[in-house]
């Protein structure tokens, strides 16, 4: 059984782009609603818990309610606060904008969990193998350096050279640590360089290897994503997704609107549906054991 995060990183990254970019750039209440439902569902299905959502819930209402209190445009007046009208249009605009922000946050929450450093690297690496190697080496050096900084810090402290009781001495201590680290890095970089030449770095054109394959299921997922995105963008291009809040809410409506929104529904719910059907299929298979 293949979970959504096990697809080829490029497929997954393209799906995220297909779902996040419209949510950010097409301000349409229905589309935003679909985006927030899809992103929160994906997050909940993935983590299988409801914890850690409260802060976003509060944030959602805070952003949504801020707009009508500062912006008084709109024709449908609900009530007055300090002689300022609170309008239905401003309120709904607030909810739409807030939903957009929160949904993008939720999409990125699952994105960062699914796209670990090596998967992101693969996405960049397929663009340029050289860049991929540099990024990979950089990722390798971050933990190496932080460990070495700790070692140098400790040994300097035990020498009694590292006074932390006044700011100038503390700063001088930092400078000393940095200087030792630079010498160490240059000296040990020679070993890394030797190890690279010993394994034939620079003898010819490099290829780029990765453990990710582009399988049949990736092709299917990619095709589905592209078709759905195409329908949505066609709708946007044909002005089927126009919506304006002020002074009164008006939206275009055509069969194309329905098609575009249906396409985005399918797109936003794709991993969730995938997850649920996979789980059912897995349980059915297990029941045969």
């Amino acid at each position: 059984m293949k979970s959504f995060s096990e697809y080829n990183p490029i497929t997954v990254a393209l799906w995220y782009a297909a779902v996040i970019l419209p949510a950010m750039f097409i301000l349409h209440p229905a589309l935003t609603a679909l985006s927030i439902v899809g992103s929160v569902l994906l997050h909940t299905v993935r983590t299988k818990s409801l914890r850690g959502n409260l802060i976003y819930f509060i944030l959602f209402f805070a952003i949504a309610l801020l707009n009508p209190f500062f912006y008084h445009n709109g024709v449908t007046i609900l009530f007055f606060v300090n002689d300022n009208p609170i309008t239905l249009e401003a309120l709904l605009y607030g909810f739409t904008a807030s939903a957009m922000i929160i949904s993008v946050i939720y999409w990125f929450r699952s994105f960062s969990a699914m796209m670990t450093s090596d998967r992101l690297l693969y996405v960049f690496g397929s663009a340029s193998p050289k860049l991929a190697l540099i990024l990979s080496m950089a990722l390798r050096y971050v933990p190496l350096f932080s460990l070495q900084i700790k070692k140098v810090n400790d040994s300097q402290k035990a020498l009694g050279l590292y006074r932390e009781d006044n700011a100038i001495d503390a700063l001088r201590g930092r400078v000393r640590v940095f200087s030792i680290l630079v010498t160490w890095a240059l000296e040990n970089g020679v070993t890394t360089a030797d190890s690279m030449t010993a394994r034939g770095y620079g003898v010819g054109r490099r290829t780029y290897f990765s453990i990710y394959r582009f399988t049949r299921s990736d092709r299917i997922l990619l095709a589905v994503t592209l078709i759905l995105e195409g329908l949505l963008l066609a709708g946007a291009a044909l002005d089927a997704l126009k919506f304006s809040f002020y002074p009164a809410m008006t939206g275009t409506w055509s069969p194309m609107t329905a098609v575009s929104l249906a396409a985005y529904t399918a797109l936003a719910l794709l991993p969730t549906i995938h997850r649920v059907t996979e789980e059912f299929a897995w349980k059915r298979l297990l029941s045969r054991v």
Binding site: S136, N188, R206, T207
Partner: peptide
């Protein structure tokens, strides 16, 4: 420590073969 070039075990294993193209 210093001989390792890349960040993941599998990538390190593949490094030499990548160089050979």
């Amino acid at each position: 420590e210093q001989q390792i070039v890349t960040d993941r075990v599998w990538h390190e294993l593949a490094f030499g073969l990548e160089n050979l193209g």
